[in-house]
Amino acid sequence: MYADGDEEQHLRRAPQSDEESTSRRFPEFNHSYDIGTVEFEVGMQFADSSSFRKILKAISIKEGWEICWLKSEKYRIRAICAAENCPFEIYASKMQHEDTLQVKRLDPKHTCSRVWENKKVRSSWLAQTFVEEVKTNPTVPVVSLKATMQRNINSGISLSKVRRAKNKALKILECSISAQYARLWDYATELRNTNPVTTVQIKCDFNALLQRPVF
């Protein structure tokens, strides 16, 4: 772990002035990138702190090291590897005159051993990460889903955690579908407004158990 100040001189640093920053183009993170191919570098830019935290966590899990947040604010984020004496450290902060977050200091080296069961792999994160897989096959067996998850993130996951993740993913999908159905009346109103001669009817049955209409 390194303290702020002169002790951080060994870290790679981004240009400090606007003039120096504008003299070269820095890479911007693109969400279409494959996580396995992303490498952090000084000057790399992210849309906001949420995006930076999300990708840093995903990369740490994929690479097999546990992240420790020393500072996690809207415009300043500093993280290190949780392993004792591992030198990895990264610091990102807001760029001048915009909300973009930029990597300002970086020590990319890891001297730690790979962590197989990463404590940062939680069921909520798994649900968000693999919601599309569950959407494609809602009845996928937990054992099969576990194999898919472990193959993709290179981390060990218990069956109970996979089961919780699947249930949360199904809940996410259910809420998404419910939200879309809730807008049917808005769609119908818009159709009537744009095409006054059009007749629009929405048919549904009321489910007494759920206390809501079923389309």
Score class of each variant (00 low, 15 high):
6 D>H: 10
8 E>T: 11
10 H>G: 02
11 L>R: 12
14 A>I: 15
14 A>C: 13
17 S>G: 11
17 S>N: 10
27 P>F: 09
31 H>Q: 03
32 S>P: 06
32 S>E: 06
41 E>A: 07
42 V>C: 14
44 M>K: 14
59 I>W: 04
61 I>Y: 03
63 E>K: 11
70 L>Y: 06
71 K>F: 10
81 C>P: 00
82 A>W: 07
95 M>S: 11
96 Q>P: 03
97 H>D: 15
98 E>P: 00
99 D>A: 04
100 T>S: 06
102 Q>H: 00
108 P>F: 01
111 T>R: 08
112 C>Q: 00
115 V>L: 04
116 W>G: 03
116 W>V: 09
116 W>H: 11
133 E>P: 01
135 K>Q: 15
140 V>A: 04
140 V>S: 13
144 S>C: 09
149 M>T: 09
149 M>I: 08
150 Q>C: 14
152 N>W: 10
153 I>P: 02
154 N>H: 05
157 I>Q: 02
157 I>T: 11
158 S>Y: 12
159 L>V: 05
160 S>Q: 14
165 A>L: 04
165 A>E: 05
172 I>W: 01
183 R>E: 05
191 L>H: 00
192 R>N: 09
194 T>A: 06
198 T>E: 01
204 C>N: 05
205 D>V: 10
211 Q>Y: 04
213 P>M: 13
